[in-house]
């Protein structure tokens, strides 16, 4: 319904307060410290062995069926959003089990742009 649009005119965003500025500083510090600590740690990580599942290989990004996904029905990619998003599949692990979920990534994300460009290039061929 058109009537639902409510435009609130008051409350322009205020300048950051002292507390907010302190937060931004604390955020930067936390980020920097976390990265630094991580690089200085001597970590034993597993041998990297992540394969793209066969059934997702070379497949068109649209309509990915994800039989293993949890957490409710996987939303089919909405046609309206299609112009501005690219549907990816996110691989996660639950315990040792691999789990695949649809993830709409806006075209503004670098890798989504790249993917779309590459796809288009392929189509031209």
């Amino acid at each position: 319904e058109h009537e639902d649009q409510v435009r609130v005119l008051s409350k322009p965003k205020a300048d950051p307060t002292t507390e907010d500025n302190d937060f931004m500083t604390a955020f930067d510090k936390m980020m920097a410290e976390n990265i630094q600590n991580r690089t200085q740690e001597s970590l034993k990580v597993p041998q990297l062995d992540i394969a793209v599942p066969m059934h997702l290989r070379g497949k068109n990004k649209k309509s990915v069926a994800c039989p293993t996904s949890l957490g409710g029905p996987v939303q089919p990619p909405s046609p309206v959003k299609e112009e501005n998003t690219v549907s990816f599949v996110l691989m996660t692990k639950r315990g040792n089990k691999q789990q695949l979920t649809n993830l709409d990534v806006p075209i503004s994300a670098c890798f989504a742009t790249k993917f779309r460009e590459r796809e288009e290039a392929e189509r031209m061929e």
Binding site: I50, V52, P53, L56, R57, G58, K59, K61, V64, V86, S87, F88, V89, L90, M91, T92, L103, V105, F111, K114, F115, R118
Partner: peptide
């Protein structure tokens, strides 16, 4: 992202 496929981790 994967190089060629629409998959991310």
């Amino acid at each position: 992202p994967a190089k060629a496929d629409s998959v991310v981790v």
